[in-house]
C-alpha cells in the first residue's frame, strides 16, 4: 500500500476505532435479535443479555401456527419472485430500446420513467386500493403482484437502461450483418451479455418487494393472502391484546430478517454494487 496509509494520524486512528465499534454493535444487534428469538418472554424482560440455555423453538412453532407465518412466508416468496421476474421481463426490452435509440421520443419516455422515481408510494395507495377492488383483485396475490410490478417500473427501467448503455454496439452490428432480426439479436446476443445486470435488477426488486409494507397492509388482509410484513404487524397488534410474548415476536422478526441475512451473505457484493454504482449512472 501507499506510504500514506502506514503513517496514520491519531484522529484517524480514533475515527477508525469508532467505526469498528459501530460495526461490532451492528453485528451484536443482529446476533442478539437471532438469539432472543429462542428465549421465553419473561426471561427476555428479566435478563436482557441472557443466552438461550434451553433454546425455545416453540417460539417459532407459535408464530408459524398461531401467527400464520408459514402461509405468509410462502405468499411473500411467491409475490416477491413473480413480481420481480415480471418486472425484469417487462422492463428489459424497454430499457434496451431506450438505451439504443436516442431521439426526442425516447428521451421524453426515459424522462417520464425517471419522474416516477420521485413519486412516494402513499400517492398511489388509495387509487390502487380502489382500482384493485373494482376489478376484484383486492385481497389477492395477483393484485399485489400487479401493484408491485407497476411500482417497480421506474427504478427497473432506469437501472437497466444504464446497464444496456454499457454494452458495446459492435455486438448488435455484427449480429445484424449476420442476418439476425432485432428480436433475435436481443434475445440471443444482448440478453446473455446483460445477464449480470438482469440478475441485479431482479435481486433489488425482490428485496424491495420482500420488505414492502404499506401496499401489502392495505391490499391484503385474509390470513391466507397476507405477506410476512402484514403477518408480523398483525401479530404485534394481537399481542397487545393478549399480552406481549416477546420471544414469539422476535421469532416473527427473524422470519422476516433471516432471508435477507442469507441473501446478503451469498450475493452481498452484487447487491451493494447494484445499489451504488447502478444508482450513480
Amino acid at each position: 500500500m501507499t506510504p500514506r496509509r502506514k503513517a496514520r494520524s491519531l484522529p484517524m486512528r480514533i475515527a477508525t476505532g469508532v467505526v469498528w465499534v459501530v460495526v461490532a454493535a451492528d453485528i451484536v444487534l443482529v446476533g442478539w435479535i437471532l438469539l432472543t428469538s429462542l428465549r421465553s418472554g419473561t426471561d427476555i424482560l428479566n435478563h436482557p443479555f441472557g443466552v438461550p440455555t434451553h433454546p425455545k423453538f416453540s417460539n417459532y412453532s407459535k408464530v408459524f401456527s398461531d401467527g400464520g407465518f408459514g402461509q405468509a412466508a410462502l405468499n411473500s416468496v411467491l409475490v416477491a419472485v413473480l413480481s420481480s421476474v415480471l418486472a425484469v421481463a417487462v422492463a428489459a426490452p424497454c430499457a434496451y430500446a431506450l438505451a439504443r435509440r436516442r431521439n426526442r421520443v425516447s428521451g421524453a419516455m426515459s424522462m417520464t420513467f425517471a419522474m416516477g422515481l420521485g413519486v412516494p408510494g402513499q400517492v398511489m395507495v388509495v387509487p390502487l386500493f380502489i382500482g384493485m377492488a373494482k376489478v376484484n383483485l383486492d385481497d389477492s396475490q395477483p393484485g399485489l403482484i400487479l401493484v408491485y410490478l407497476g411500482l417497480a417500473m421506474p427504478f427497473t427501467v432506469y437501472l437497466l437502461t444504464g446497464f444496456f448503455s454499457g454494452i458495446p454496439q459492435v455486438l448488435e452490428e455484427a449480429a445484424v450483418l449476420d442476418g439476425a432480426g432485432a428480436v433475435r439479436t436481443f434475445t440471443r446476443v444482448i440478453l446473455p451479455v446483460a445477464r449480470g445486470g438482469l440478475v441485479t435488477a431482479f435481486l433489488l426488486q425482490f428485496i424491495s418487494a420482500w420488505n414492502e409494507t404499506l401496499f401489502a397492509i392495505v391490499l391484503t388482509h385474509s390470513q391466507d393472502k397476507v405477506t410476512l410484513p402484514v403477518a408480523l404487524s398483525d401479530f404485534v397488534q394481537e399481542a397487545q391484546l393478549n399480552g406481549l410474548d416477546w420471544g414469539a415476536m422476535f421469532a416473527g422478526v427473524c422470519v422476516v430478517l433471516a432471508p435477507m441475512i442469507a441473501l446478503f451473505s451469498w450475493l452481498g457484493s452484487r447487491i451493494i454494487q447494484g445499489m451504488t454504482v447502478g444508482i450513480g449512472k
Binding site: C94, Y96, L98, M124, L128, L146, L149, M153
Partner: peptide, 20 residues
C-alpha cells in the same frame, strides 16, 4: 420493445397518480 413497459407504467402508475 417499449410498449409493454409503457402500458404497465401508464395503467398501474401514472393513472393512479392522476386519480389521486
Amino acid at each position: 420493445f417499449t410498449a409493454p413497459a409503457v402500458l404497465v407504467y401508464f395503467v398501474l402508475f401514472l393513472v393512479p397518480v392522476g386519480y389521486a
